[in-house]
Design a protein around this nucleic acid. Structure first.
Lengths: 194, 194
DNA sequence: GTTGACAAAGATAGCTCTATCTTTTATGAT
DNA sequence: ATCATAAAAGATAGAGCTATCTTTGTCAAC
C-alpha cells in the first residue's frame, strides 16, 4: 500500500493561490496548477474533486488562518465593554491582514469568482463571521455605534484595511507611515454614536 | 453602401453587461454575447477589436455615465468651503449609485478581471478621479480631514455606498430605511479631523 | 523477491472559446 | 434594375481546458 505525498496537497494549494494572486481566480486551470507544481494534470484530481473544490479549498484555507489566529476571542468575552470588543475585532482584522498580506486578496478574488454562481457556496462558512456580526449588533443595540446595517460596517473595516495592505504591497508608502490607531480612528470615528 | 445598425453596438454592450452582472466578467465570451443579442459570433468583431476591447468598452461606458451626471462639478467650485465640496463628492457618488445600481458592480468586476493584467489599462481613464483626489488632498492639507492616504478614503466611500446598493438589490432592507445622511455621517465621521 | 494496492503519469474525448477568412445578403447610389 | 460595397453570417483553424479512463511506476507487507 503506497502512501500519498503529504506535502502535495498544500503545494497544489500554494500553486493555486499564486496563480490567483498573479492572474486572478478566473485564470486558474488544472493544467497551469499541475505545471506549476511539477506534477501531471490528472494528479490534481486525486487530491481535489474538481476545479471548484480546488478553488474553494484555497478559500477555506485562508478562512481557517483567520480562525487560527484566535485574536477574535477577546471580541467574544462578555466581561469586556462592547466598545472595546469592537476595537478588538478591528485590531484582529488589522493584525491578520498585516501578517497575511495576500489572504484578504485571495478571499476577495474567490468570492468574486464563485459568488456569482447560482448556488452561493459561502453560506456554509459563517462561523467566525457570526461572532463579528453579533458583536457589532450588540454594539448597535447598546447605542454605542450607529444603527446602520452590519454588512456596511464589515465592508468598511474590510475595505480600509485591505486597501492599506495593497498600498503597502505597491510601495505607495512605508509600513511605519501609518499605524493601527490611524485606521482605527478612521473606522471608529465613523461608526461610533456621538 | 450599406449602413451599420446604429443600435447594435449598444445592444452588444448591454448583453455583455448583463453577462458580467449575472455570471461575472470572467464568464464573458463572444459566443454568449452574440447568442444573447441574436447575431453571429463573428459580427461582434465588426464592432469591437477583440474581447478585451469589448469588456473595456463596457467599463468606459459606465465611467462616462459618471462623468455625464456632472454632479461632481460642485466639488471643483473653489468658492465653496472644502468640507462642503467633500460632501458634494460623497453625495454625487451616492446619487449616482442609486440611479445606476449596476454601475459600481460593473466597474468593480471589470477592474477585478483586467486589473491583474501585466499592463494595467486603467491608468488611461483617471479624468474624474483626478478631481476627487485633488479635493480630498486639499481637505487633508487644510486640516479638515485626517491625513490618511487618499486611496483609503476613496475605497471607504466606494465600499460603503456600493454595499448599500447591493443590500438594496438583495432586499435586505427597504430603500427608505436609511437615507444619505446615514451614510454621509458614517463616512464623514471617520475622515473628519476632530 | 513477489505481489497487491494505490499513486502518478499518460492519453484522450469532448467541450468552449478566439480570431480570422470566406461566402452570402442587404442596401444605397447610379 | 444593376452594381458596388460593406454588413452579416458561416466556416474553420488552432488553442486551452476539464474530467475520466488506461497504463505505468513505486512502495509496503509478506
Amino acid at each position: 500500500m503506497r502512501k500519498k505525498d503529504e506535502t502535495k496537497e498544500p503545494r497544489i494549494l500554494d500553486a493555486t493561490a499564486e496563480i490567483i494572486l498573479k492572474e486572478g481566480a478566473a485564470a486558474v486551470s488544472t493544467v497551469k496548477v499541475a505545471k506549476h507544481v511539477g506534477i501531471s494534470q490528472s494528479n490534481v484530481y486525486l487530491y481535489f474533486k474538481d476545479k471548484d473544490d480546488l478553488i474553494m479549498s484555497v478559500y477555506r484555507r485562508e478562512l481557517n488562518k483567520i480562525d487560527a489566529t484566535g485574536d477574535l476571542e477577546l471580541a467574544t468575552d462578555q466581561s469586556i465593554p462592547v466598545a472595546k470588543r469592537v476595537r478588538g475585532y478591528i485590531k484582529a482584522v488589522y493584525d491578520f491582514a498585516l501578517a497575511n498580506p495576500d489572504s484578504l486578496t485571495l478571499i476577495q478574488q474567490v468570492k468574486f469568482l464563485l459568488g456569482q454562481h447560482d448556488t452561493n457556496p459561502f453560506e456554509d462558512y459563517p462561523e467566525h463571521e457570526n461572532v463579528v456580526i453579533s458583536v457589532l449588533q450588540e454594539a448597535i443595540d447598546a447605542g454605542v455605534i450607529k444603527p446602520v446595517p452590519v454588512s456596511l460596517l464589515m465592508s468598511m473595516v474590510f475595505s480600509v484595511i485591505h486597501t492599506h495592505t495593497l498600498n503597502l504591497q505597491k510601495n505607495r508608502y512605508a509600513s511605519n507611515d501609518y499605524d493601527f490607531e490611524t485606521f482605527y480612528s478612521l473606522i471608529w470615528g465613523g461608526m461610533k454614536q456621538e
